[in-house]
Write a protein that binds this DNA or RNA. Structure first.
Lengths: 113, 113
DNA sequence: GTGCTATGTATTGGCAGCCAACATATAACT
DNA sequence: AGTTATATGTTGGCTGCCAATACATAGCAC
């Protein structure tokens, strides 16, 4: 699948994988990969600018960690981030119902939970 | 909802409303509006270029009609268009399952049909 | 008979947002 | 020694939707 279709939903994906605890960038990529069954393959040019934006908006905070000689930047969801994530989920439901109703009229209207 | 999120799914929407029979541009807009419960509000700057592209790809054909003094351009789905629509529906299911799995892990994986 | 709204088609410029490509470094395995 | 995995980041470009604009007929209200 064209991973380009993530467009507009990226913020929600990032916040969702950070919900259970902090992760660093690389781990975020693999987490999204695994949860999506290998379908979604985000690139660094996609997530780092997005993470910066979310931090600038106060939805994430970041801190540097050291593992041996290697540095990692750990991203943590803020309270505002959790509220925003809830809104993203609501928007996702509305979105899937709307598109789904047009694409498959007559089918039971249901959201992709 | 930001109708901008339609991005990447527009072709499927247009072909879906043309499935039961030909429609002209303005009627396509209102059909999408009604089917989506008023959520999706496509603009002419969005659909006309998209319809042209689909016709160029052989997924639609168009013909002019006259209603009194007024002219309409009627768009009809081709066989290739029907096959493409089926692919769009499959892609939509995969898409919603993938995003849904990341956004709402642990929930029953289901597509937005 | 005049304005307003609905119906109808179409183009252009802009921009948001994702991606490819590039750059760089440590660590582990073969 | 070379390749792969782990790790972070930037820049330039392109796709695709939207706002704004333009124009024309038709119907209704006042």
């Amino acid at each position: 699948m064209r991973a380009d279709r993530v467009r507009g939903h990226l913020d929600g994906l990032l916040m969702a994988v950070l919900e259970q605890g902090p992760l660093h960038g690389y781990a975020i990529i693999t987490a999204v990969q695994q949860r999506s069954g290998g379908v979604l393959d985000l690139r660094t040019g996609t997530i780092y600018p997005a993470l910066n934006k979310l931090e600038r908006l106060g939805l994430l905070t970041s801190s540097w960690e050291s593992v041996g000689e290697r540095r990692r930047r750990s991203y943590r969801l803020t309270d505002a981030g959790r509220r925003s994530l809830a809104e993203e989920r609501t928007a996702w439901r509305e979105f899937t119902v709307a598109i789904g109703s047009v694409l498959n009229p007559g089918a039971e209207p249901r959201s992709a939970i």
